[in-house]
């Protein structure tokens, strides 16, 4: 992926995430676009870029939803780093990685900036299911589209 293509993708991903979080205000989706993109960057052997992008996009998401600055940045960079060591060959492994990291990200809900560590099992489970579910679905769709070679055609744009 060259610099221009990377920039284009970044623009698309950020726009989608802004649409989800700021326009539609769908909180249960969380930073799903950023999350999926950093996973795909890692799987595309752009591991260092995925770690940095995880951190920067996480910060952007914190600003977008007015959360604790640094919290999502930290979580997404950890996910991007761990993803480098996760088995990632087949679709099944990618879906598994998405679900595992989705649950890991959802565990961040335990921390509340006002009260410290709080256990809200039901809320966490719901978010975890939705976040991981959308993530797994997204990975499957993108994987299939990629496999069909739709995005590798030069004239697709």
């Amino acid at each position: 992926m060259d610099g221009r293509r990377f920039g284009e993708w970044l623009l698309v991903i950020v726009s989608l995430q802004v649409l989800l979080s700021a326009v539609l205000k769908w909180k249960l989706a969380g930073p799903i676009c950023f999350f999926l993109w950093i996973l795909f960057l890692g799987w595309g052997k752009l591991e260092v870029a995925s770690i940095f992008m995880g951190f920067l996009l996480g910060l952007f998401y914190d600003l977008l939803v007015r959360g604790v600055i640094g919290w999502n940045g930290l979580l997404l960079s950890i996910i991007a780093y761990l993803n480098c060591y996760f088995p990632q060959g087949s679709l099944r492994e990618k879906v598994l990685a998405t679900v595992v990291f989705g649950i890991f990200y959802s565990a961040g809900l335990i921390v509340n900036p006002e009260y410290g560590l709080v256990w809200e099992g039901g809320q966490m489970l719901r978010f975890s299911l939705i976040f991981s579910g959308i993530g797994a679905l997204g990975v499957t769709v993108i994987f299939q589209v990629e496999r069909m070679g739709l995005w590798t055609r030069k004239s697709y744009w």
């Binding site: 951190f55 910060l59 604790v68 600055i69 640094g70 940045g73 930290l74 991007a80």
Partner: peptide
């Protein structure tokens, strides 16, 4: 990867400390 992660981790923790207080 480790270096990139370490850099992000340290920056993230520092930012988190400031962000937490602000929140």
């Amino acid at each position: 990867r480790e270096l990139a992660f370490l850099l992000c981790l340290l920056t993230g923790l520092s930012l988190l400390k400031v962000g937490w207080k602000a929140k």
